[in-house]
């Protein structure tokens, strides 16, 4: 049995969303049809508002609402000499939750992954380079994911930023808090050893 054109169109459009298969699309469509019309309209309005008002920040490519630059770039209390480079806007939210970082961000909008056709030109690397050239930036903190693509992205950034004379650092990686050494994989454990912190230098003569 097939549905009327209008219903089928709704199901097709919902089915194009990530993680929603044909069956789920059908379920959501019927839920919307059964729901009071103000509920459905509120959803449609939210989608329209978000698409109209949210754009990418012209400086850092974070999501920005109703303006050219995002709230973080416009915030005058922020440290402008530190820039944290992340893969996606969601990563900014994660770093902001730590309340440890008061600088600005730069969103690459992806990670270096040749097998998926993502190279330097698909990432916002050139934009980062022109920021380093134009703004008074002292340190770039590379906070890409600690996986294969993220590490390759970090190496790529080093290659492009090296000639520009800016300090480039990488967020540390190691064992998760509450983890178990025995089950740690070699790579993570190796990195944890490499980036160990000194508890005591052993040079103090007095206790």
């Amino acid at each position: 049995m097939s549905y009327s054109t209008t219903v089928q169109e709704l199901i097709d459009q919902l089915g194009r969303l990530p993680g929603i298969g044909p069956k789920s699309a059908q379920r959501v469509a019927f839920h919307l049809l059964k729901a009071p019309s103000e509920d459905a309209l509120r959803l449609s309005r939210a989608i329209i508002d978000a698409k109209e008002r949210v754009s990418f920040c012209s400086r850092c490519f974070n999501l920005s609402e109703g303006g050219d630059e995002c709230a973080i770039c416009l915030d005058s209390r922020r440290e402008t000499r530190m820039v944290c480079v992340v893969e996606d806007s969601q990563d900014i939210v994660a770093i902001e939750r730590t309340q440890e970082f008061r600088g600005r961000y730069h969103v690459l909008q992806g990670a270096f992954s040749p097998i998926d056709g993502v190279g330097v030109e698909q990432l916002r690397v050139k934009e980062l380079m022109s920021r380093v050239a134009d703004e008074d930036i002292e340190e770039i903190i590379v906070a890409t994911n600690p996986n294969l693509e993220g590490e390759a992205t970090a190496a790529l950034l080093v290659k492009y930023l090296k000639p520009m004379g800016v300090r480039v650092s990488r967020i540390a990686s190691g064992l998760p808090v509450g983890g178990d050494l025995e089950y740690a994989d070699e790579l993570t454990l190796g990195r944890a050893l490499e980036g160990r912190t000194v508890l005591d230098t052993g040079n103090d003569s007095q206790p």
């Binding site: 996986n147 294969l148 089950y183 740690a184 994989d185 790579l187 993570t188």
Partner: peptide, 13 residues
Amino acid sequence: RTKSKFGARLEPL
């Protein structure tokens, strides 16, 4: 998950 026993072993390459 950060506590996964596979961790980095299953990355491409």
